[in-house]
Write a protein that binds this DNA or RNA. Sequence first.
DNA 1: CGCCTGATTGATAAGTATCAAGGTCGGTGG
DNA 2: CCACCGACCTTGATACTTATCAATCAGGCG
Lengths: 231, 231
Amino acid sequence: MKDLRAHIANLPESVKVRALQECRLFEGLTSTELNDLAVRAVSIRYTKGDFIFTEGDPAEFFFLAQEGLITLHKGLASGKNVIFIIASIGDTLNAAALSMNKHFLSAQAITDAVVLRIPRNEFWELVGRRPQIALSIIGLTATALNSEYNRIMDILGEDVELRVVHSLFTLATKFGPNLMLKREELANYAGTTTESAIRVLSKLKKREIISSAGRGAIFISDLARLQNYRR
Amino acid sequence: MKDLRAHIANLPESVKVRALQECRLFEGLTSTELNDLAVRAVSIRYTKGDFIFTEGDPAEFFFLAQEGLITLHKGLASGKNVIFIIASIGDTLNAAALSMNKHFLSAQAITDAVVLRIPRNEFWELVGRRPQIALSIIGLTATALNSEYNRIMDILGEDVELRVVHSLFTLATKFGPNLMLKREELANYAGTTTESAIRVLSKLKKREIISSAGRGAIFISDLARLQNYRR
DNA sequence: CGCCTGATTGATAAGTATCAAGGTCGGTGG
DNA sequence: CCACCGACCTTGATACTTATCAATCAGGCG
């Protein structure tokens, strides 16, 4: 049984500031403000597999990814789960949910990861002082909403093959052609089963659009053909 | 061919104020402010079937439903479409999309309808003066986002039968047990075909959970059994 | 070396869209 | 006033997609 307790990292402020700067929400802040925020922020280190928070938990902190990959997902009664977002440095884990009292999604580290966290009320105080941040949250949440509309269109309108291809393309746009994901994670992101995702990958490999880069990795060798993919 | 041109209604301010009051965004406003807003707002009358705006159009106005039912949907390549929201009095048609430049969804009147519209920049000026409105937009958008997460879980995790049942329950919670919707509209809301939706309805009628209330209507006679429905 | 996790392929079954064929109702025009 | 027409509703048969179940393989790590 793995030790699930996370560790407070106590990183120097400069490292935290760098993560805050990566986040769209804090774009307009002066370096003094960023420093203030960094002082209030605590970095926490998680081990691959650890949960940072769970769907339905009270949302007491604002969370920001600082290092590593973190999935934001929801569990299905059948035991499988659906990955909505894969967060990396500068991505907020729960900016939208913070306005409600509970987390919408679960956050789980899929690599070793470091997360910045700021108490909920301190975050809202800052938003009160800097209304621009509220507008950025609106933008962020609206963008997320639009992505989910599009995902639904994809799920209802396209077959599994196209969905996996679209997922690969989206992920490659964010993370580059070298995806450090297991087949299962890709499947959960695309909303299908591991087996079905693998069948699509096999087909893509035969067409030399991807080449598997070993366990837990997928290398996309021809992004252009992936984008214009037709069965 | 139907006349698609909508008509400016020029309703008295008091009628417009009533619609504004129904909207969660304007809860904290004084009656003076509401009146100011009502003066700037134009009511427009649409005939059943008319489009108020279309997916991808530039979002130049803030829209609020004042009378009638309006679907917010997106078209699928196959010609079918997916209904995300059915808006009625007090519902915003595009609060989230207003922060982007384009409409995410199409808005179509499915009954004769009246809509309030406020120029985009005047709306944002108001938000600037009253930061509480920005927070309400965050709340509204976050709630919408959470709904779509749940819808995706439903689509991926439940069969069509449960999805139609859930849709009926959600709609009945908002509109009451007497739903003035065509089978096709219900199907588009549930993300299935008209035929499949009808098969579910037939089953529900056999179990006396619903009774069809004539063409273009569904009457839910046993909401409790609908909520706890198992196949 | 053997075990555990992840990847892969094949066979099968279930669920649902699709296609096809009426059926029903309300409105409209002769 | 009646008959027809069009929109909507309903049911049945079929085919296709994809989940599920089962078996095997590959590689890293203790």
